[in-house]
Computed example of a mutant assay.
Amino acid sequence: MPRVRSIFLSDIHLGTRACQAERLVEFLREHAAEHIFLIGDIVDFWAMSRSICWKPSHNTVVQKLLRRARRGERVVLIPGNHDEALRDYCGVVFGDIEVASELVHETADGKRFLLIHGDQFDQVTRHHRWVAMLGDRAYDLLVRLNCWFSWGRRKLGISGYWSLAGYAKRKVKTALNFIFDFEASAVHQARERGLDGVICGHIHWATIREIDGLQYVNCGDWVDSCTAIVEHFDGRLELIHWGTRQVSAPPTGASLEAVSGTAEV
């Protein structure tokens, strides 16, 4: 099993039909770590208020994280907007898992990163909650449709993974503008605190890139892209796209530092 210093995960959305918990279990089985940071939207209470889809694989994810915490790995949960109810418990430890509103993590090479979910930088989520809820339902529909597209591609013998949600993000100009505004706000927050960068989630767009001399890192999600960030023992950060060797093209100016994976999703 490859061992890394840290694993950063966000937007797992346990409790929803779209959650790819099976892929996450595979990833966790293949990666041991000293630290695991769960950066928001781990359990989707928003979706569960409408309907609950809790599969055995969702239990397996929770049990695996609890087991690794008991065995000495540091596991920290930073709640997001979909599991914001857990923000009332920041500073509490549940089953050896710490709950924190945010965190500053120092990598092995001495760089300091702000760990935060990122909904704080999203003006829609902060000030127009009903719009955010509507967008959440629309995204869920795209992800469900993508399951049928993937099934059809496999039947036609078309290899590789194609994301309908990712395609929509690339083609809709307002969505790309939102992503760039989000990134700029996140980096500004890190700069204001005298840090070297920020590691976040929220927008389901995995990347490692430099913005104005600081590192912007987004973990992506385990609904559509199945991505994670790992820190190696030399402090290097790597983006892992689990389950496919093909990555959807990022927006103009973005770059994926490293990619690896297993078989087709």
Rank of each mutant, 00 (worst) to 15 (best):
R144P: 00
R144Q: 04
D119Y: 15
H128Q: 06
L195T: 07
N146D: 14
E102L: 01
F178M: 03
G194Y: 13
R193E: 14
K155Q: 03
R153M: 10
A190C: 08
L156A: 11
N146T: 03
R154Y: 06
G166D: 01
G194V: 03
K173L: 15
L145A: 06
G220D: 03
C147W: 11
T207R: 14
R170H: 06
C200Y: 05
V131G: 02
K111C: 02
I179N: 03
V223H: 00
F180G: 08
K111T: 10
I211K: 04
W148I: 02
Q123W: 11
H204V: 00
A186Y: 14
W148D: 08
M133G: 01
C219E: 02
A190F: 12
L145D: 02
L156H: 02
A206N: 10
T207M: 10
G220Y: 01
G194N: 13
A184G: 09
T207H: 11
G160P: 01
R129I: 07
I211C: 10
G194C: 05
V198P: 00
D140I: 09
I116G: 06
S150Y: 13
A168F: 12
R137N: 03
L164F: 03
E210Q: 04
I203G: 09
A108V: 05
F121Y: 11
G135W: 05
F121R: 02
A108R: 14
K173E: 11
L195Q: 03
V124R: 13
T107H: 07
F113C: 04
I208H: 13
G220C: 03
W205V: 15
A190T: 02
G194Q: 09
T207C: 09
A165Y: 12
T125Q: 13
K111L: 12
R129D: 00
I116P: 05
R154A: 10
D181F: 06
A186C: 01
H128C: 12
